[in-house]
Amino acid sequence: MDFSSFNSAEQAHMTKIIEKKQMQDFLKLYANITEKCFITCCNDFTSKALSSKEESCVANCAEKFIKHSERVGARFAEANADQAGGSQ
């Protein structure tokens, strides 16, 4: 996105909005990972506490999701840069 046509007041305003949205995006990622990894890892509801197997599943699942999300972000940024640069 290009904000070069914004004056300084508009840029200041936009910066504040973007900061708020980044916080919201982070919280949404947090909620998404929790939901996905709960669905993947928890299938036994006879006990209240996470089993050690479930715990390590959640740790691996979360790690994997974050790396996945970062990789998608990196490829997405490259594709956008390609497009903006006119090479595609």
Binding site: C57, E63, K64, K67, H68, V72, F76
Partner: peptide, 27 residues
């Protein structure tokens, strides 16, 4: 853009990783 990106993350997660038990934390 954010909505589009989030849907892409979710769709590609389902296609490439899915709900199978993760062997470790790496891709």
């Amino acid at each position: 853009v954010t909505d589009f990106f989030n849907r892409m993350v979710s769709s590609c997660y389902n296609k490439c990783i899915g709900a199978k038990y993760p062997a470790d934390g790496d891709l």
